[in-house]
Design a binder for these strands. Sequence first.
DNA 1: ATTAAATTTTAGACAAATCTAAAAAATAGT
DNA 2: ACTATTTTTTAGATTTGTCTAAAATTTAAT
Lengths: 219, 219
Amino acid sequence: MNFSTSEENYIKTIWRLQQNDSNVTTNELSAELQTKPASVTDMLKRLKEKKILNYEPYYGVKLNGDGKKIALSIVRRHRLWEYFLAEKLGFDWDAVHDIAEELEHVSSTELINRLDEFLGFPKTDPHGDPIPDSKGRIEAINHFALTQLKEFQLAIVVNVTDKDNSLLEMLRLKKIGIGTKLEIKQRFSYDGSVEVKIRNLPLITLSEQLAKNIFVKTV
Amino acid sequence: MNFSTSEENYIKTIWRLQQNDSNVTTNELSAELQTKPASVTDMLKRLKEKKILNYEPYYGVKLNGDGKKIALSIVRRHRLWEYFLAEKLGFDWDAVHDIAEELEHVSSTELINRLDEFLGFPKTDPHGDPIPDSKGRIEAINHFALTQLKEFQLAIVVNVTDKDNSLLEMLRLKKIGIGTKLEIKQRFSYDGSVEVKIRNLPLITLSEQLAKNIFVKTV
DNA sequence: ATTAAATTTTAGACAAATCTAAAAAATAGT
DNA sequence: ACTATTTTTTAGATTTGTCTAAAATTTAAT
């Protein structure tokens, strides 16, 4: 079965949202896709016809097995292109997402498998998100938000939210990236901000909003 | 100004056809684009509105200066992607065109300029077609069809028609590629076929239809 | 110079993907 | 439990790019 660019964007977004939610609502999709709820309803009816998701009026939507497979292949394309853009073409990590949004809709499987090989079968994209392999297998997520890290516990940044380029730009300017080792020196309950030590650099303060979008694992 | 995938395909095709014809007709476009003449007329009216071509009902169409610039940027994208697919991903030259047809519509100028740099600013695509530079400058064509080559005159293949994958596949199997040195040993006026010597390989016979689509320059 | 044939355009329809406005259903507040 | 609010769907319209069938125009043939 073949899907339009628009259908692929819906599938990918439903997949992402159902990681948290299990059941994805019309309004959530509308907000994520920047379309009106009425348009979402129309598209869900079309995708239901194609038997890749379960949709009941007023009760939200969920991808079925076939839908998940399709979603994973789109995510694979997106993340491989992001890796290519950052590693081979030298783009900053806050520039790769928008271009990969276009490249991901080029549908040749042969292209993607050869690209994967050319890149050396990378495990994660430039934001630390795992890249599904050619069978659609994807690494389980095993990290937590920086806000959850205990004080004086050394950790390593393994993932950041990639949906907001201004967040990524800010982290780039603050020299925080995938692989950065850090430690929380102090936590302020008043506003949820944290003071973080990176290597031998001066202490820096991160707002709660920022820290929530940085994911780490302990070392 | 921004153009849809469909509009870009029209612009690119008009550009290619007007190299020979100067004035491109509705039926020519219809045949090349695999659409009905009525659809072509509709699109030409839309593109005329956008002021990138001169179109008079019943009198054919021609890109203006702006139109040519846009065409050259699409051709540049297409040919750079073809080069990437062949040189970096190892695709055969008869496989690259169809994938590049999709990739060429990803419109980031920054992407294309970085890709160009990554590839080392290649001069021609895998079929020998010149790649426009970032200013839209393109190398003048300076070659002729193998059918025009004098007997016993040593020549080098510099270009082949890229529109037909079965032609390209045939040449690949016959070990004829860009850079192949050859010489016509005999020419048969009956059917226009030619006997060609390549290096120390046995003489091979090429039909007129095939020889017309191989372009050479003398060495 | 007429007529026949080919080409091109017009008119009207359709599918995909979107929108607005209004109706229907579910949820929350008192 | 009833009402108000929010969410979602339905109905009808719009744009893009295509189609078929018919009309208009140009080109070719005798």
